[in-house]
């Protein structure tokens, strides 16, 4: 087990990102990650957990998620039913308290990595509702009069797609990192991490075609790292001759997801 985060076999991070993670760990603050879709925001948490040899707890945020869901739920209906049929231990409320993901992370016997994924999906007030919990790393369960306090401050990684603006008070408590789109050098490294035996010519041609498509201004949804990786996989499985890639652009649907974009690119080639 290490105490510093480093690039893993499958996850290649830039120097700045590595620093960002390590600073967040040192200062015990949540790390807020933004960046284009597909630049590996969610993957980062997995890599951090793997690199540090810690357990990863993922809290996926949806538009209906409430802050309370992450702390605990009191399963009243189950208790009601149990009360009806005279189950044992109904008078013990603690039996019906279910810890949420944040609660689970606090209650863990060892330090964990907590990923709060796509925080911007939730309601506007959601981040504000978590300020105290993330600051103090504790919350209070009214029903059992118990305070859940983090035994070891979890390493908190938060991702956002910038669908909504996050409140200032919340931002002030975070360390912020914006994942730049990888340049060709870093991209090559990333692709090689996924396909150690990739054919040189195929890699070169696919990368060239990929960056050319990205450079078209009228492409609405620009393909990203994950799409390139899928594409190279498709090209390999399809046994496509590398020299035909740029001319024919096979499996274009893997990198472009909008009809208009497919048409635009086909038209240009």
């Amino acid at each position: 087990m290490k105490d510093r985060f480093e690039s893993t076999k499958k996850y290649i991070a830039s120097r700045e990102l590595l620093d960002g993670v390590n600073v967040a760990i040192a200062l015990q603050k949540p790390l807020l990650i933004k960046g284009e879709p597909g630049t590996g925001k969610t993957m980062l948490a997995k890599a951090v957990a793997q690199s540090l040899g810690k357990r990863l707890i993922v809290w996926n945020i949806k538009s209906t998620t409430k802050a309370q869901d992450g702390l605990y739920l009191y399963d009243t209906i189950q208790r009601l039913y149990d009360g009806q049929f005279g189950e044992e231990g109904v008078d013990d409320i603690a039996r019906y308290i279910r810890l949420g993901k944040l609660g689970e992370a606090f209650d863990s016997e060892e330090q964990v990595v907590l990923l709060i994924d796509e925080i911007d999906k939730a309601d506007l007030e959601f981040p504000n509702d978590l300020l105290w919990e993330l600051d103090q790393m504790e919350f209070y369960i009214h029903e059992t009069k118990r305070t859940v306090k983090a035994k070891h401050r979890p390493i908190v990684i938060i991702t956002s797609n910038a669908e909504k603006e996050l409140p200032d008070a919340f931002l002030r408590r975070c360390i912020f990192h914006y994942i730049d789109f990888p340049d060709e050098g870093l991209m090559e490294e990333i692709v090689r991490a996924h396909f150690p035996n990739v054919e040189e010519k195929l890699l070169k041609e696919a990368m060239a075609a990929f960056y050319e498509i990205r450079s078209y201004r009228d492409v609405r949804k620009k393909p990203s790292t994950s799409e390139l990786i899928d594409w190279i996989r498709a090209l390999q499985i399809g046994g496509i001759a590398p020299e035909t890639i740029r001319g024919n652009l096979p499996f274009l649907g893997v990198i472009l997801k909008k009809d208009e974009d497919l048409e635009t690119v086909r038209h240009k080639v």
């Binding site: 807020l32 975070c174 912020f176």
Partner: peptide, 15 residues
């Protein structure tokens, strides 16, 4: 250079 990134990640919260 490290100071630059350190200051940026702490002081700036939007690209």
């Amino acid at each position: 250079t490290r100071f630059y990134y350190l200051a940026r990640m702490i002081l700036v919260k939007s690209e």
